[in-house]
């Protein structure tokens, strides 16, 4: 159950990072770091997805 809570906190992270985007700067996209941020967010989400799938698997075992 605690792990589920950790997953939930993990889901908050993309939002936090998203809020860092700042306005109409033309430097915003010229900097390659932005794509690193997008990649990291996707990785975090994939981590959550993998975790949920593993929970799913364990549940299947327990249910049998």
């Amino acid at each position: 159950m605690n792990k589920l809570r950790v997953a939930v906190v993990g889901m908050l992270l993309p939002f936090l990072a998203n809020a860092q985007e700042s306005g109409a700067d033309s430097i915003f996209r010229s900097n390659q770091k932005y794509y690193v941020v997008a990649a990291v967010l996707t990785l975090i989400f994939l981590g959550i997805a993998v975790f949920l799938l593993s929970v799913e698997k364990r549940l299947k075992q327990l249910e049998q």
Partner: peptide
């Protein structure tokens, strides 16, 4: 059922990557 769970992963990965990388259109500042 599993299919809709996989669907949510696929959709959200698509939204995360696409939604964050598609550039903004032109605009006057």
């Amino acid at each position: 059922q599993m299919w809709w769970k996989y669907l949510s992963i696929v959709l959200l990965v698509y939204v995360l990557i696409g939604g964050l990388t598609v550039p903004l259109g032109p605009g006057l500042v």
